[in-house]
């Protein structure tokens, strides 16, 4: 049994689809599809760098 995997979730009501999170993710885990932020759970390791850059406080690391 491994540790529960960390991942990032997006609060859709706060996200202003600006792309800041994408610019800092070296795992290419997130993508702005038009104006909809998608986070690829396979690629995201929950490092949380995107949480720090989000202007709207819309992202959160969860286990």
């Amino acid at each position: 049994m491994g540790m529960p995997k960390k991942r990032v979730i997006v609060n859709r009501y706060r996200c202003a689809y600006c792309g800041a999170c994408i610019a800092v993710c070296k795992f290419n885990a997130n993508e702005l599809v038009e104006t909809f932020l998608m986070i690829d759970e396979e690629k995201c390791n929950g490092c949380g760098i995107c949480v720090k850059v989000c202007p709207m406080n819309a992202l959160e690391v969860v286990s």
């Binding site: 600006c18 610019a23 800092v24 993710c25 070296k26 760098i49 850059v53 202007p55």
Partner: peptide, 10 residues
């Protein structure tokens, strides 16, 4: 890829 001191969050 930008580091946290290479980006302005606005």
């Amino acid at each position: 890829t930008l580091k946290l001191d290479e980006i302005e969050s606005c």
